[in-house]
Simulated assay, not measured.
Amino acid sequence: MMYTKTLQLAQHIQEYLLDLESNTNHILQFNSEMDVTGLLKTMDVKIEDYTEKFFERLVCYIKNVIGVLSVKVFVFINLRSYLTDNQMEELIQEITYQEVHALFIENQERTCLKGGIHYIIDKDGCEIY
């Protein structure tokens, strides 16, 4: 249903641009393929967030980004500074359930959580397993 509406929207935008061109002294160049992501950014579209808790907002964000943008990899920096070990394990389970991948980069050594693989890279770039 939304695919058809997206095609109709693209057609209306093209008609608008052609009308704009005919009503000015300018020849316009535009891409006939509409970038829906760019349109959503232009309109500053956001999903309303009803929850106050950081962990719940994060999980909701991940689900929405996967659903809307088909993202397959997430990179988090120092996330364990903000979440408990239980929340991290829940997050790893959710990411696994959603069939995406995540890279958690931390600035300090922490215990490896269930479902994770632990690598330590020292200041010389050497990997310690």
Rank of each mutant, 00 (worst) to 15 (best):
K63R: 13
I47T: 00
L113K: 00
N23G: 04
L113I: 00
E99M: 03
Q108K: 06
E56H: 04
L18F: 00
V36A: 05
I92C: 05
D122P: 07
V68Q: 06
K46Q: 03
L17G: 00
V59R: 06
E15Y: 12
T4G: 10
Y16S: 08
H26P: 03
K63G: 02
Q11D: 15
T51S: 11
Q98C: 11
H101N: 10
F76D: 03
L39V: 10
T84L: 03
Y3E: 15
M43D: 08
V100C: 10
G115C: 03
I117H: 11
Y82T: 12
I47S: 02
L18S: 13
K72W: 01
M34Y: 05
N64E: 09
R110V: 09
V36Y: 11
M2F: 14
E99H: 07
C60W: 02
V59T: 10
F30I: 04
L28V: 10
Q87T: 11
V68T: 03
T96I: 02
T96G: 04
Q8Y: 15
Q29K: 15
T4R: 07
E109M: 11
M1A: 12
Y82F: 15
E52A: 14
V36D: 06
G38S: 15
H101V: 03
L113M: 03
N107W: 11
G125F: 09
K5R: 08
T37S: 10
I66N: 02
L9E: 01
D122W: 14
N78H: 10
E21M: 07
N78D: 12
L18G: 04
L28H: 05
L79R: 06
S22W: 07
F104E: 04
N23A: 14
D49G: 01
V100F: 04
I120M: 09
H12E: 14
G67F: 02
I47M: 00
C126Q: 09
L28F: 14
Y129S: 15
V36C: 02
N23K: 13
Q29H: 15
I128W: 13
E48F: 01
D85E: 14
H118S: 07
G116W: 08
L91A: 05
V45P: 00
Q87M: 00
L9C: 09
